[in-house]
Design a protein around this nucleic acid. Sequence first.
DNA 1: TTTAAGAATTGACACGATTCAATTGCAGAG
DNA 2: CTCTGCAATTGAATCGTGTCAATTCTTAAA
Lengths: 333, 333
Amino acid sequence: MSANLRDVARQAGVSVGTVSNVLNRPDVVSPKTLERVQKTIAQLGFVPNGFARQLRSGYSRTIGLVVPDVANPFFTEVARGVEDAASKRDYAVFLCNSDESLEKENKYLSVLIQQQVRGVLITPSDSKSHQYENLRERGISVALLDTETKNASQCSVSVDDVRGGEIAIEHLASLGHREIAWVTGPETIPQVADRTAGVMRAAKIAKVEISTIRVALMNSAQGTDAVKKILALKKMPSAIFCGNDLLAFGVMRGLLDAGIKIPEDVSLLGYDDIAFGNSAAVPLSSISQPAYQLGVTAAELLISECEENEVHAHQQIKFQPQLVMRASTATKK
Amino acid sequence: MSANLRDVARQAGVSVGTVSNVLNRPDVVSPKTLERVQKTIAQLGFVPNGFARQLRSGYSRTIGLVVPDVANPFFTEVARGVEDAASKRDYAVFLCNSDESLEKENKYLSVLIQQQVRGVLITPSDSKSHQYENLRERGISVALLDTETKNASQCSVSVDDVRGGEIAIEHLASLGHREIAWVTGPETIPQVADRTAGVMRAAKIAKVEISTIRVALMNSAQGTDAVKKILALKKMPSAIFCGNDLLAFGVMRGLLDAGIKIPEDVSLLGYDDIAFGNSAAVPLSSISQPAYQLGVTAAELLISECEENEVHAHQQIKFQPQLVMRASTATKK
DNA sequence: TTTAAGAATTGACACGATTCAATTGCAGAG
DNA sequence: CTCTGCAATTGAATCGTGTCAATTCTTAAA
């Protein structure tokens, strides 16, 4: 098998402590010894055993990233940001998909504990108080991703989803729409709950009537299904706002298939502003979130928390969403 | 700090050996003791330290996944497959984006070695002989992902890109197209080279003339740029085949902006069949690859290689691409 | 030549789980 | 009551590295 520290020490005629010093604190070793040991290391092709090293030091250079689903382009972008930022600081990233299941989330957290990650970046799958005490007790830093926390004892990086909901309704209202369908997922998802709050608040002010269409999963297929429910409403809305772009794509498809024109017959607004919005059948207006930036910021925050553990001041960073107007929203006829 | 094996043993009133047995060979422990120890484990929230375990056993339960870019929906799907399959066998996955740079690829491989991964799944960023001897020497299994190998000493899971290129041209030729533009990235990318080979072979048989338009990066923006080059050709092709769907989306946008109708004026065919093809301005015909399945298969193969190292028979699995016809390709007028 | 201070080196112990030879406990046979 | 055999449990040794108090070596000053 491969050589270990002891082998190198024996071969070079020094003690294991000296070899260890050669590796970790070369300045305390005499030049002559240093050279001899380094030569021996090269000769034996010695590579320090990472397990032993990490066991001893207690720290790894890894973080865990737990998102509902990387296949969602929004989270793909976030993941890219996390990965780039982590890599820049020589951290490796474990990727975990929770599929919005608490059970899976917990399973992954336990795996991450086993792997002794230094920190965890997580988009929680439900709105309960996200204490993650079991992680903290083990000295694993936790930062919330795309989720706000009221709790000042942890970092979070989020986008103002309430504001996002408001912007959307303000935009549609300013185009003259007074009946709007709000197509979205379960309120247990924090982002959904916030966007709904924003929608309702802005609707009240703008005197807009909201019909909520609830779907179980926020993907394209369920968007197409939702169209049936929209068409079954007693009064057809003149605008539709979707909880994310995937849903909006599905809705768009359903509407076009039903012969309904966008934006002439109905305006359609998405959320996330994923890259394909541009290329859609009708270029999709959307609420844009700085996904990549979110990932980068979160990773940097988490790693800085890991490395300066005692003197770390928790931060709650909140980005602002932005309206991106394309062709799918227009003035009400 | 967090509890260790000794703490559990003390609390449960048994020896460390017994606790270890509870975890690893529950069958040799008496039911009564088993239950008591498990209760204690739950109570203390004990999670075994992966480093210590790995130091002793010599193996980790982690693999590395190196892809050009997860933000490419094809690789996102692959990554999901890898992650699901790995998780099912209790492996954790390191995510690495090489951005098609050899330098980054090597940097990540070195990080993965440091992390002592058990195996690596990689989509190489150039077509050189992919030996990865430095990994093998360290006992790290390597399997190629979305790349074929002639080398029988490693596993690979790929899609028949030559055939994919053929299918594309055969399809377009059968629709009556005789002048086709082939818009693609650098030939140093193995997949590109293979698809080009298939394109050329099929073109020769079908007596089709191919104009190759080369772009540096296979993304949407460069697709739009490529349209200028297409329009500058001495003879306008009646069909355009793109190296991937992202490129095709860009080309579609460029064509539509130029007032060119799809598929009336020109047929457009993509590659990868990403989920958004459906929702595009003109639903995009494409060559479909079983991305998720590719990821699942590769992960299973790699893990089985890791675990039965001596008796492992290397396999080269090749999936077949498939034509998915939507609205963007039609008979030549 | 002696001495003191600083530099260099040593080696036992710790990290936490696994392993396995040795020990204990227990039931049934004689 | 003793003995045998099996099941259950024990705990010391081990994996390879980092740490640090203790020791040895070196050098320059007296």
